[in-house]
């Protein structure tokens, strides 16, 4: 289950932000820490960078039984 969620987070982020690299570290059940490196972050504020990632994973966070319950830490970096 946990490994599936990690894979679906990675594919959601890397699918939405073409050419990005996403690393996911699982925490307590349902909690994950994400690091995303993407050239497309260049020139965007921290807020815009995080919004881009959050909107990519929003479908995984929807509903009471969402596989991704919470993002413990989100780090974005320009590639």
């Amino acid at each position: 289950m946990g490994a599936d969620v990690v894979a679906s987070i990675v594919s959601a982020v890397e699918g939405a932000l073409a050419g990005s690299r996403c690393e996911v570290a699982p925490g307590s059940p349902g909690h994950y820490a994400l690091t995303v490196v993407w050239a497309g972050f260049s020139g965007r504020s921290r807020l815009e960078q995080q919004r881009a990632v959050l909107s990519a994973i929003a479908p995984l966070m929807k509903g009471a039984a969402a596989p991704l319950h919470a993002v413990d830490r989100l780090t974005t970096r320009v590639a």
Binding site: R46, L47, Q50, R51, L54, A58, V71, R73, L74
Partner: peptide
């Protein structure tokens, strides 16, 4: 705020972000 989590910080009318952004800043 179009932001999925709490806490959320506003400074001088502008949305700044959540815990991670505030920490980095």
């Amino acid at each position: 705020s179009n932001w999925p989590t709490i806490p959320q910080l506003y400074v001088k009318g502008q949305f700044v972000g959540g815990c991670d952004i505030v920490t980095e800043m």
